[in-house]
């Protein structure tokens, strides 16, 4: 396997509406491995995925995918690069007017000129991989949250991408659906050799499958390494996040005026 990293972010700064979301983030995501990007809600994990996919451009710094500098790509080159990426959105983002089968067939119909019988076979294989071959005729409105994400996963691997990005795949899932998704992410990585980028704040699930993790807070990477290395990490902020402590370097209280200002000098 090519030893060069699949994705590289170099000193990325990103600001929106006057707020700096990333202030010099640098990270390197290895090829063919599962990398988790973790951190408290609102730290810009999804924004990071959007920059990798070229949907957002950094204010400064470089974002490289497969050696290509994404923000500098033209429209055609960017769309060609995206054909090698899959992305699982938090909501699934299935097309509500298409059946499960047609949702999975969609990228094949748009990007290939394969005959219908071959598309049918590929779609059924992808649905089989996520355990939903029998749900091919259902409409998205008839699916549970977990099933929606599995169909979206089948759709995102329809073109056999080299890279797949998961945006909060475990959020709002029951334990069984979560277990299914953990298994699918692990199996897809192993069988297809995919580079998998997992954005999540679910520590146990992410640590159970990732090879490497980055923890982001306050616009920068505050810790990185294997799950074992991170569990031993010396940073209080990393430990507060991993152990879910309500107070610490990230304070329990949102910044507010002095209590006396709001309530007066009440004993």
């Amino acid at each position: 396997m090519d030893p060069s990293p699949h994705i590289v972010l170099e000193d990325v700064v990103f600001a929106r509406n006057g707020r700096t979301i990333f202030d010099g983030v640098s990270l390197s995501i290895p090829r063919g491995r599962i990398s988790a990007i973790m951190g408290p809600s609102g730290t810009g994990k999804t924004t990071l995925l959007k920059m990798i996919g070229g949907q957002l451009k950094p204010s400064s710094g470089r974002v490289l995918v497969d050696g290509e500098e994404v923000p500098k790509l033209g429209r055609k080159a960017l769309y060609r690069l995206r054909e090698t990426m899959g992305m699982l959105f938090q909501s699934g983002a299935l097309f509500t007017d298409l059946s499960v089968f047609e949702n999975v067939a969609f990228p094949l119909r748009v990007h290939t000129r394969l005959p219908d019988d071959m598309i049918r076979d590929i779609v059924l294989m992808k649905l089989e991989a996520v355990g939903l071959r029998g749900a091919r005729d259902l409409m998205p409105a008839e699916l549970s949250g977990g099933m929606t994400r599995r169909v979206a996963l089948a759709r995102s691997i329809a073109l056999d991408p080299a890279l797949i990005m998961y945006d909060e795949p475990f959020a709002g899932q029951d334990p069984i659906a979560m277990g299914v998704l953990v298994k699918l992410i692990r199996d897809l990585n192993r069988t297809m050799g995919l580079t998998s980028v997992l954005v999540s704040h679910d520590v146990p699930e992410s640590f159970s499958i990732c090879h490497h993790a980055f923890i982001i807070a306050d616009g920068r990477v505050i810790g990185e390494g294997t799950p074992d290395e991170l569990r031993q990490h010396g940073s209080e902020q990393v430990q507060q996040f991993l152990q879910g402590q309500p107070d610490g370097p990230v304070p329990f209280h949102y910044p507010a005026p002095d209590r006396v200002t709001d309530w007066g000098d009440v004993q």
Binding site: R80, R82, M85, M87, F89, F95, V110
Partner: peptide, 18 residues
């Protein structure tokens, strides 16, 4: 709102055209 346009973009399909 349901990220269908974003998912089209990420599939390499231009939502303006589609």
């Amino acid at each position: 709102a349901t990220e269908q346009l974003a998912s089209l973009e990420m599939m390499g399909v231009d939502p303006l055209r589609r």
